[in-house]
Design a binder for these strands. Sequence first.
DNA 1: TGTATACTTCTTGTATACAAATCTGAGTCG
DNA 2: CGACTCAGATTTGTATACAAGAAGTATACA
Lengths: 234, 234
Amino acid sequence: MARITKDQCLDDLKLRILSTDLSPGSDLDETSLAEHYEISRTPMREVLHRLAGAGYITTAENRGAKVASMDIGTMRTFFQTAPMVYANIASLAAEARTAPQLDALKDAQLAFVKATGAQDAQAAALANHRFHAVVGEMAHNPYLVASLDRLLIDHTRLSQRFYRPSNADEKQRIVKASDQHDALITAIEAHESALAIDLSLQHWDLSRDRMERYVRPDPLPVDVVSLKDRRNAI
Amino acid sequence: MARITKDQCLDDLKLRILSTDLSPGSDLDETSLAEHYEISRTPMREVLHRLAGAGYITTAENRGAKVASMDIGTMRTFFQTAPMVYANIASLAAEARTAPQLDALKDAQLAFVKATGAQDAQAAALANHRFHAVVGEMAHNPYLVASLDRLLIDHTRLSQRFYRPSNADEKQRIVKASDQHDALITAIEAHESALAIDLSLQHWDLSRDRMERYVRPDPLPVDVVSLKDRRNAI
DNA sequence: TGTATACTTCTTGTATACAAATCTGAGTCG
DNA sequence: CGACTCAGATTTGTATACAAGAAGTATACA
């Protein structure tokens, strides 16, 4: 890794965590990370503390850092909390958005469309993350945004595989999600906060269905023959 | 300041910020802080980054740390956001609280009663902070708690002067707040989440009235004589 | 063979020296 | 008189050496 700044290191680690390149619960060794980014341990530790503050990782005294885990208990609260926060954020965004923020939102949506078109699942998930983070900025509510940011971390990690459709139905869902983004942009631009709430709840329903399928996927086919084959192969 | 650990330093700074001993917006010099706590700058900087992550302070590259400000814009969103978050947290707390957490809650309320009885406004505000932080822990919802914690920082700073009643009416309000705490404890203990929502909204209404009075205090009496006296005094 | 314990190794935490950036104020020029 | 510049002082950021703690390993003993 070429020599980079502390901020770039921070952003890179965020992306690696969001894309589950660094998987939930995995250990982070500050020495090797510092070597990788070619900075010394002092600023590396600062980056890790920032990540911990933002909920990307957890740290334990004398025990180093771990990527924030995604246990089943937190997932439950995730599904419980997300719609309320998303809807409120969307409503506030419609009220308080500025013109430059609207540009940034359209830009994120452009990246999202491009990534889904190219079947680049990881880029799509990250563009989706950026889209919703910009909506969060628009809300101008530092209190709620703290919740939103934490929700988005897990949302993005959960949705890593969504944007690689394996059939026509899944493809259709991605198109629908993109349409919902466009509709949300229009609502926010027009300051229509009630509509923004409705749209973000619809958008959430779509996401939830896909995420639940990921958390609880279709069971593997019970196929005695292939099981036997596998046993033979050992 | 006697030699202390990093965690104690962190807690002490939190308390000093919550009690507005360190006033919003004031500069924090890491060198003098490190000397004060008798630790070197490296762990001191770590503490500052933790505080920044939790929303107590803000940091700017090469520009040092400041105690988080309380500008009028954020206050608006504070009043907008707090009831929703408090109500949801209370509801979740009633569902998910554990027995030890209930003990901690009763303990915090005991401290609150004691502090208000002793007319110790600062201790009362901090005990109130601890009370609501424990309710937050009970909710077992890391996403929403991120919002709650940030709200409580500003709530506590705003309410610093509440618990020093200047007349019978204000005294009555403090008794009412304490009664509401007791009722909330009972509701949470009985797993009555709907009741917990109602109670926390009532509790919020009481707080809000007092805080708005603080933000927008009664206008000074227009008293020409005393104005003249003041002019003479210059 | 299983457990305990001391020793080694590896990782994290702290102090300090040095580098880089920002701030301050005196002096200069238009 | 005001704006600009540049040196000095102050403050923040980084690297590195050393200390302290945790984890792993080998050996002794039951």
